[in-house]
Each structure stands twice: as structure tokens, then as C-alpha cells.
Design a protein around this nucleic acid. Structure first.
Length: 221
DNA sequence: AAAGCGGGGTG
DNA sequence: CACCCAGCTTT
């Protein structure tokens, strides 16, 4: 059973770790990234490592800063530009969602969850990410990294399931109001570098004293 | 609920 | 060589 104050302690440790060790230089996290830039980055990052996206992101958003610029380009050309990322359907999602932005949203990115979810290729995680990073909304975003972290720290029943409502509820409860973007980035970086899927670095984890997973592991040492 | 997508990096 | 990566759509 997790003591009631563990959540707050965990978030404090997480944010302190992030300030010191986070991947602050990633271009799609820049303050001047537009909501459309954020949307492009989230499309690229689906099931794709940040290192791979780094190879193509900056040139892509410079070449295609608006949905119109996507639509003016043959899909074959777009496909070449992001070929190294894999997942070929991504090109169609980029193109069709750009059509939706132009036709239904006056060429802007909508700032509501329901409208974002209507876009081709946008699911719960991507919608939440755009709201947090593009519009500074106080919403949580749960991907496989976040689901894994929360499942371990709080010993959740539906382990590592980004679709489990419990993950979203906990992520929302822990959210530091006014800092959702840093909070989400912190969770993801933490999942990529400390609380990894295989061989998590519990020994050097700043939150291991408030983690059910680590404490239960210790019992079997 | 489960399968399928995908190039590139890692153990 | 098998497996994973800031998920989503379709069956």
C-alpha cells in the first residue's frame, strides 16, 4: 500500500532529476515551436526513438511550416523525407490531417481534445501532448514510458498499459499545475534513461525510496 | 482484445 | 538474430 504522500515526493524527485539530467536541447521542445511543429514532432515520435527523429525533424519543419506546405507537396516526396523513420502510413496521416486542418480549422491546430482526436493519426497520447506542449494546457499524457513508470512506482494492476484509465487518473492527480509540459517531458526522459523497460537503473534512481517496484525487488535480494 | 506496421539501434 | 522505440488504426 502506497502512503498518501508518496505521489508528491515522487514528483519532486522526478522534476529535480529532470532539471539536471533532462534532454532539454531537443528542437521540438524549443519555446518557439508552433503547435503545428509540435504536432509534426508527435507524429514523428510515434513508436520511433528521439534519436531517429533528430535526423529529420529540423529540416522537415523548416521546409513544411504549415499544413498548406504539406498539401502542396507530392506524398511521394514527403515519404522520402521521413523514410528513415519507418511506419510508411505516417506519410498518409501527415497529409490527411493537414487536409483536415485546412478544411475544418482554418489552417490552425485545434486546441481541444475532441477536435484533435478527429485528426487522422492522432490518438489520446498525441492529443494530450499537443495540448500540453503546444497550448500550455494542464493535461497529462500517458505513453508506454509513463505507463511503465507509474505501474512500477504505484504497483498498478494493469501493468504498462497506456490505455488503462488508472494511469491517466494518477498522472492527472500528480500533475504540477502550470508545468504540464516539463512534467510530461520529465516522465518520458526518466523512462528513457532511468526507469527503462529492461534493466532499470533502480540503484541510482532518485525515486527508489518511494517506489513499490524497487522496494518489492529488495525483499527478494 | 489483438494484430500489423517499419527502419534503425541495441543486447 | 530478436527485440524495442514519445502509438494508432483496423479487424
Amino acid at each position: 500500500m502506497v502512503p498518501p504522500n508518496w505521489g508528491a515526493v515522487f514528483v519532486d524527485r522526478l522534476l529535480a532529476w529532470y532539471e539536471e539530467n533532462g534532454r532539454h536541447g531537443l528542437p521540438w521542445r524549443a519555446d518557439d515551436a508552433s503547435p503545428f511543429d509540435v504536432l509534426i514532432a508527435e507524429f514523428m515520435l510515434q513508436q520511433t526513438s528521439a534519436a531517429q527523429v533528430l535526423n529529420v525533424y529540423e529540416e522537415f519543419v523548416e521546409t513544411y511550416p504549415t499544413p498548406e506546405s504539406i498539401l502542396e507537396t507530392p506524398q511521394e516526396r514527403l515519404a522520402e523525407d521521413i523514410e528513415s523513420l519507418g511506419l510508411k502510413k505516417r506519410t498518409r496521416y501527415l497529409y490527411e490531417s493537414s487536409e483536415q486542418l485546412v478544411e475544418d480549422h482554418d489552417s490552425t491546430v485545434p486546441n481541444s481534445r475532441s477536435e484533435l482526436l478527429e485528426l487522422q493519426g492522432v490518438g489520446e497520447y498525441t492529443a494530450a501532448s499537443v495540448l500540453a506542449h503546444g497550448f500550455e494546457k494542464d493535461v497529462a499524457a500517458v505513453d508506454t514510458n509513463v505507463a511503465r513508470i507509474l505501474s512500477r512506482v504505484f504497483d498498478l494492476d494493469r501493468e504498462n498499459d497506456p490505455g488503462a484509465n488508472e494511469n491517466w487518473v494518477i498522472a492527472e492527480v500528480l500533475l504540477p499545475v502550470g508545468h504540464s509540459s516539463d512534467y510530461i517531458h520529465a516522465l518520458i526522459d526518466f523512462g528513457a534513461e532511468v526507469c527503462t523497460a529492461s534493466n532499470p537503473n533502480c540503484e541510482n534512481c532518485p525515486a527508489n525510496s518511494v517506489c513499490e517496484f524497487h522496494l518489492s525487488e529488495e525483499k527478494f535480494e
